[in-house]
């Protein structure tokens, strides 16, 4: 109904309805209090308007009971709002495990999208209806912000790190994708479409080849129609990672099975090998040295685009510990540093 009244954008995700419900609650409570205050002021203003310069007014210093009441009641209501908002926020921050993976890189002034299966697009994001989609975001230059009003989601794309957002589209159609964080001249032109499709159409679209809206310029050499893992593998060989990190090699840590596991570092601390850690290990290998290895890996900073780093990470994540290989022991996951 809110949507038909033109008060809210299309409700095209599972979260959209929940957000609007929360908003309705906030607005209702606020309206109640605003009207109460306004009505009281108007009533007093009329009733106690000055009748004569000689009006005598009583001296009322206050009332502790009233002060407590109008502190504690709003506080109680505020805590309900907090709890509800926090609950929704946790939902927004926890992508379901079975979510589709999409990488989105912001760049002045475009959104570059890489699907795990290999298709790439610019300023368009095709997704199937009814399936959670997890978006991993980063930026090649300044901070951007990935905003889809119809899904009620927004997440900054910050250079130098990964952030994530997720949604589950509930309605076929195409919806605005905005950059919400000011990023320079064409900030308002950094917009695109999220296109929600029937699963079958989506599969057909995915299979339609990788060259879609995105020409080779977007991803450099290792792109084309390959899926991310294959593209990552190609880079892995091309850039020479393979020399030190292939199964059985001793110069660098084994990578199979490391993603998502705990890594022991030279200085005795441990770290979870999440996307940010893998990215850092590729671009600034000296930052965290894996226990038992020398800091000999060269940096790949400036030699890989953000999209290529994401491809390498996809490849590393795809590596499963191979059987019979002692160094890929799951107990001490190791990774490249």
């Amino acid at each position: 109904m809110l949507e038909r009244l033109g008060l809210v954008p299309p409700q095209a995700s599972t979260v959209a309805v929940q957000t609007d419900l929360l908003s309705t609650f906030l607005v209702t409570v606020s309206l109640f209090f605003s009207i109460l205050i306004a009505a009281t002021i108007v009533a007093f203003s009329v009733k106690y308007r000055r009748r004569s310069e000689r009006d005598v007014t009583p001296r009322i210093h206050g009332s502790t009971a009233l002060e407590i009441a109008w502190s504690v009641i709003p506080l109680g209501i505020a805590m309900v709002m907090f709890g509800w908002g926090a609950h929704l926020f946790v939902t927004l921050k926890r992508p379901p495990d079975d979510a589709l993976q999409v990488n989105v890189v912001g760049k002045q002034w475009m959104w570059k999208v890489q699907h795990l299966e290999g298709r790439r697009e610019i300023n368009e994001l095709h997704v199937p209806i009814g399936r959670p989609v997890k978006v991993t975001l980063t930026s090649e230059d300044v901070i951007h912000s990935f905003y889809v009003p119809a899904f009620r989601i927004k997440q900054d794309a910050v250079p130098g790190r990964y952030t994530t957002a997720w949604f589950e589209a509930t309605r076929i159609g195409s919806y605005h994708l905005f950059c919400a964080e000011y990023c320079g001249t064409m900030h308002s032109g950094m917009i695109g479409q999220v296109i929600v499709m029937e699963p079958a159409d989506y599969e057909a679209w995915l299979a339609g080849g990788g060259v879609s809206a995105a020409p080779a310029a977007a991803g450099g050499a290792a792109g084309g129609g390959q899926d991310l893992v294959a593209a990552g593998k190609e880079l892995f060989e091309q850039k020479g990672c393979v020399t030190c990190h292939q199964p059985g090699a001793v110069l660098g840590p084994q990578l199979a099975g490391v993603a998502g596991h705990t890594v022991e570092l030279q200085d005795g601390t441990t770290v979870t090998a999440d996307d940010d850690y893998l990215r850092e290990s590729i671009l600034s290998p000296a930052a965290k040295i894996v226990k038992g290895f020398a800091p000999i890996m060269p940096t790949f900073k400036g030699q890989l685009t953000e999209e290529q780093v994401l491809q390498l990470i996809a490849y590393i994540k795809s590596l499963k510990p191979s059987t019979g290989d002692a160094s890929a022991d799951a107990g001490t996951g190791k990774t490249g540093s």
């Binding site: 929940q18 957000t19 906030l26 605003s34 908002g85 929704l88 926020f89 912000s145 905003y147 009620r152």
Partner: peptide, 30 residues
């Protein structure tokens, strides 16, 4: 002064909206 109370009340209450985590995600930077 009464105008202040009116406008500040609206500004303050919408500030409370923005402090509400799930709500802020949608309207932040809008």
């Amino acid at each position: 002064a009464l105008g202040f109370i009116g406008l500040f009340t609206i500004g303050g209450l919408t500030g409370v909206f923005l402090a509400t985590l799930g709500f802020d995600v949608h309207v932040h930077d809008t």
